[in-house]
Design a protein around this nucleic acid. Structure first.
Length: 370
DNA sequence: TTCAATT
């Protein structure tokens, strides 16, 4: 894979900047790559951490890219211990501190494929900065990243923060009420949990949940396997498939002849985020469907198989217990088109899967319970 | 038995 230097962004004259693009966490506070932040004498002036690297970028390519700035003492792409997959970040240690500074000024914010890389000074490796990452849920949908940081900053220095959003449509995006806060030190994260878990943020009606984040590297083999189903085959025997196929054919005919289905609230689709009105199941770009009464051993593939034949499915999720990894009895499916989602619901609600009768509906806005 | 979420 080649990385085109010509795609380099105009960071050259701007100096160190924070990466506030949508593909990675970012700090609001303007300290994320400034040399001034390294107050400690122990802080290296040559060692850089590079975040948000494209998944397929190799250590050699990382070295090649950063070697264009100056002589590199060492370079390491961090990989998953088991799978060998890149974890999307790495370290580059220069011989000359001036080159490290130059690399920040030149390469921070560089766009590589779908990513915008972040280049900043690495903090000294130590036990105290490990496991300082928090997962926060139940946030008010109106809370901004800045407000999130303000809430947590009383407990320590925030390294990165992020609020997860539904897929961005133009300028608009909707918070999923879930986010991350990485503190400088673990003790700060512990204090934040004590102080904020199960507490209502100012003005909020519901308490938030604050806990240590999962380690992303311990992504289960099950989760990795489920990615193989991102291209589900559409073979699904039985009358259901025929119903689904007939509907798809109807859709094609409608498109060809300009016939508008009696469903299709497409007109509302484009304005929901502007008007702030809530339509069941509607989340930014698709229609979220609640599937209830799944078996404990249900997995993502069954959802792909059931819903795929009805049309464009962008996401499926089986909700599992964190400890047992067994399905908690429900899951979610996101479909792009209202018509297809509506037919899928009409067809699959009451459907017998094994010895269970499924209940399928648009997702409602039942409130978060910690 | 009825609505999550893990950059």
């Amino acid at each position: 894979m080649l990385f085109v230097i010509a795609a380099m962004e105009t960071q050259l004259s701007n100096g160190p900047t924070c990466n506030n693009t949508s593909n990675g966490p970012s700090t609001i506070t303007n300290n994320c790559s400034s040399p001034v932040e390294s107050g400690s004498v122990e802080d290296s002036k040559t060692n850089l951490i590079v975040n948000y690297l494209p998944q397929n970028m190799t250590q050699e390519e990382l070295k090649s890219l950063f070697g264009s700035i100056g002589e590199i003492e060492s370079c390491k792409l961090v990989r998953d211990k088991i799978t060998g997959q890149s974890l999307g970040y790495g370290f580059v240690n220069y011989v000359d501190p001036k080159d490290a500074e130059k690399a920040i000024n030149t390469l921070n914010g560089l766009r590589l494929q779908t990513k915008t890389i972040k280049v900043s000074y690495a903090r000294p490796s130590s036990a105290s900065i490990r496991d300082a990452n928090l997962y926060v849920s139940g946030l008010p949908k109106t809370m901004t990243q800045k407000e999130l940081e303000q809430l947590f900053s009383q407990y320590g220095r925030i390294i990165t923060s992020r609020i997860l959003v539904d897929q961005v449509t133009g300028e608009y995006s909707v918070s999923r009420g879930v986010g991350f806060i990485r503190f400088d030190r673990r003790v700060e994260a512990e204090e934040a949990i004590k102080g904020l878990n199960c507490q209502k943020p100012p003005g909020a009606t519901e308490p938030i949940t604050v806990k240590f984040a999962n380690n992303p590297s311990q992504k289960t083999s099950q989760a990795l396997l489920s990615q193989l189903y991102q291209s589900p085959n559409r073979r699904y025997p039985g009358p259901l498939a025929q119903q689904a196929q007939r509907f798809r054919l109807d859709n094609l005919l409608n498109m060809a002849y300009g016939v508008k289905s009696r469903f299709s609230p497409m007109a509302i689709d484009g304005v929901t985020s502007l008007a702030g009105i809530n339509i069941p199941g509607h989340a930014g770009t698709g229609w979220c469907i609640f599937v209830y009464n799944l078996a404990p051993d249900a997995d993502e593939s069954i959802l792909w198989q059931m819903f795929g034949p009805f049309g464009a499915v962008t996401n499926v999720k089986v909700i599992r217990d964190f400890n047992t990894n067994k399905c908690k009895g429900f899951g979610f499916v996101t479909m792009t088109n209202y018509d297809e989602a509506a037919v899928a619901i009409a067809s699959l609600n009451g459907y017998r899967l094994g010895d269970r009768v499924l209940q399928v509906s648009f997702k409602t806005n039942k409130t978060h319970k910690a």
